[in-house]
């Protein structure tokens, strides 16, 4: 059974070039096929969620888009340029991997960590930088944590700080790999409100991996269901229909959904 792939409807004002264009992306990891023939594009000012079961290749997809792992086939263009030749446009990217920090005993304060996202040459001098760090921390509601060492933060607090790291400088394209995992309901709602604001007011584009189907259906513009390849893509009400979820996650998911 192949579910119909609905044509995506974009808002009328979005006639710009795509922020991201992926064509026929195929990636092998240690000789097993991780994703095959994935094609999609993202238009400016949209928030797209990638959903799919564990091992579907979601993180692989984002790592391949960012050219962090080699691909076997396909073409990736970010801001209309091949990803290998982004040049200074790489400062327009914000990336939060699943595990940003391996070493919790790293001696670095929250403000210093956020400041790493500030690229002097691109955005201005030291004083403007300090103001930008304070503002970014306020926007994610973590300003009171600024002098703490990162090792003392809770999981949710750390996620806020990492988002502050991304937004300390004006960027265009955010890639979040389960950035909200472990964040409580209120925290997740705050996050989506902030993403919404960045999207509406500053034209940011967001590609995020999420396991929270409810949050995705409420807040994202588009959903890409992935299970090795694109199972379906479209607005949340279409892409997250029971039929498409079944096709993406397999029978186990529908059982899970019925029981809870």
């Amino acid at each position: 059974m192949t579910p119909e792939i609905p044509k995506t409807q974009y808002p009328a004002h979005n006639t710009q070039h795509p922020i991201l264009n992926v064509e026929g992306l195929t990636v092998y990891r240690n000789s097993y096929l991780a994703i095959r023939d994935v094609s999609f594009e993202l238009l400016p000012g949209t928030d797209t969620a990638v959903v799919g079961p564990n091992g579907a290749g979601k993180s692989t997809l984002i790592q391949a888009i960012l050219n962090l792992i080699p691909r076997t086939g396909g073409k990736i263009e970010i801001f209309g340029r091949p990803v290998e030749r982004l040049g200074h446009l790489c400062h327009q990217l914000g990336y939060v991997p699943q595990n940003f920090i391996f070493d919790r005993s790293f001696p670095i304060s929250v403000a210093e960590l956020v400041g790493l996202g500030w690229v002097k040459r691109q955005a201005g001098g030291e004083r403007i930088g300090q103001a930008a760090i304070a503002q970014a921390l306020r926007r994610v509601g973590a300003y009171q944590l600024r002098n703490q060492v990162i090792g003392t933060l809770s999981g949710g607090e750390l996620k806020r700080v990492l988002l502050a790291y991304c937004i300390v400088m004006p960027r265009k394209f955010l890639l979040l790999d389960e950035a909200f995992a472990g964040v409580d309901i209120q925290g997740a709602a705050d996050f989506y409100a902030l993403l919404n604001q960045l999207k509406r007011e500053e034209d940011w584009t967001v590609l995020q991996i999420s396991h929270d189907i409810d949050m995705v259906s409420r807040h994202c513009d588009r959903v890409l269901c992935l299970n090795q390849t694109v199972v379906c893509t479209g607005t949340p009400d279409i892409a997250l229909s029971p039929q498409n979820l079944l096709a993406t996650y397999g029978p186990a998911f529908s059982r899970y959904h019925h029981h809870h």
Partner: peptide
């Protein structure tokens, strides 16, 4: 220094930042 710190914290994120 900042690049070295970022690279120490997370090489992938450092690579994305050029």
């Amino acid at each position: 220094l900042r690049q070295q710190i970022l690279l120490t914290l997370n090489p992938d994120v450092a690579q994305v930042q050029g």
